[in-house]
Amino acid sequence: MREITYAQASLEAFAEEMRRDPKVFHMSTDAPQPLVKEFGPTRVRATPIAESALTGMAIGAAGSGYRPIVDWRMVTFCFVAMDQIVNQAAKIHYMFGGQAKFPILYRASVGGGTRLAAQHSQSPYSMFMNLAGLKMILPSTPYDLKGLLKSAIRDDNPVIAFEATRLFGTKGMVPEEDYTLPLGKADIKREGKDITIVALAWAVHESLAAAEALAAEGISVEVIDPRTLVPMDVATIRASVRKTGRLLVADEAGPTCGAAAEISALATEDPATFACLRGPVKRLCGLQVPIPYSPGMEDFVFPDRQKIAAAVRELVRPKS
């Protein structure tokens, strides 16, 4: 084990998988230089700024036996490729009766906190969750990111890796040897008995900080990170809620039709889980606005550790 950053974790994952499988190649505008240096410009291709073409070309290359990685960079830039994502990548395996496999990794940074204003601070993963046919990961630590990226590259389906921009510089312990983490398996980041927080990406770290503060107040918080959005590890989430009887979902994306709404519904529509609930379920999300630039306004929009702790107190010790 050694400590590396979230950004280093993804580069390591790509390099290791490219060494392992000659069919893996990488396309992005501005090719990542460490990869170009090791694998050359044929496998690590610098492309025109043409996300629609890149997204579609990955489908054709995947259907011809390759395992392309397409880095859209910011999720913002993939919106010009929505036809290729929604109408083609998500449906092509199903629509043609499963006759070919399309192993593709699309990669996009998401989330705010870096003062980049409305277009470059979005967390639109639920738009993609709503489609059938795409898997997606949203890891919160270097260890999870690397292990899940390696699984995503080896998976025979299109997978979108959403990576939180504001976590790029965060560090964590990562093994030096080869390892993978399964898609669709949540991680219990902290065990507790009074309330379950299901948190996504940056909100995992804020929830853990809140849990630490709340422990001093005698509130025991369990923090679950789904890590994978599709497929969602419903079983782990429900088991935790059955144990604690309370659920808070923390996500910096807006609440409307969001991942938090989906997680709440998945937990509560299960009769056995519903029967264990001791109070209402709460979503603590980013506010439903485009993300503003000025620091005071931007911070106001997101659910940080103070807001999470306050929400937990309200749920655990409601004023009656």
Binding site: A58, I59, Q84
Partner: peptide, 30 residues
Amino acid sequence: ADFGIGMLGANGIVAGGIAIVTGAGLAAQL
């Protein structure tokens, strides 16, 4: 579609297939 004979599919979206088959061309070049 019939991937066995290199027919990568009819497509309900006008211009939807052009990039896909360009990717097949990249695979052919590789």
